[in-house]
């Protein structure tokens, strides 16, 4: 498993990225930037890169993060690992990825309820139609709203 045609983010997608468009346009947050992280094969490295992301955010005094991925399957491990590492250092975190009916989580933890599904296909599957299940402006706005609520509720419990 990996990156299928309907979820794959093309170079054009990155150029017109809905997350950057939405987060960069909201005066109610201080948008610090985009961290790009890969998906190593090696388990040791999988854990390490997730930890490095969390440390980086912590060092920047980040309050909230949204994590998104265009692949699913094996890379869900990386996704949930990085999300958990960010959460463990006390930073509010929400996720965005393709779930549908085909890519539901194999294991769940305290962070999985905060992952939004970007599936757009009726059957909830990898349709092999290029762009069909891509993250769009609506998903990005939803994630921003969700993250704001999460940051507010985390602040109360701190």
């Amino acid at each position: 498993m990996g990156v299928g045609p309907s979820t794959k983010e093309t170079t054009l997608h990155h150029f017109r990225d809905p997350l950057v468009a939405v987060f960069g346009d909201d005066p109610d947050i201080d948008f610090q930037g985009v961290i790009v992280v890969g998906t190593p094969q090696d388990n040791l490295l999988k854990n390490l890169v997730g930890k490095r992301v969390a440390k980086w955010l912590q060092a920047m005094r980040t309050d909230g993060a949204v994590i998104s991925a265009d692949g699913w399957g094996n890379s869900d491990v990386d996704f949930m690992n990085t999300m958990s590492e960010i959460g463990h250092v006390g930073i509010s975190v929400v996720g965005l990825k393709f779930i549908g009916t085909q890519a539901t989580f194999v294991v769940t933890n305290e962070y999985t309820p905060f992952v939004l599904d970007i599936n757009k296909s009726k059957a909830g599957i990898e349709t092999t139609v290029v762009g069909e299940n891509n993250l769009d402006l609506r998903d990005a706005n939803k994630a921003l709203g969700f993250l704001k609520l999460k940051m507010r509720s985390d602040l109360k419990t701190k």
Partner: peptide, 17 residues
């Protein structure tokens, strides 16, 4: 930058395998 507002980052996981 919007000082005083919550600091937010987008993390993008990309394929590199």
């Amino acid at each position: 930058s919007h000082p005083g507002k919550p600091k937010v980052v987008v993390v993008k996981e990309v394929a590199g395998q």
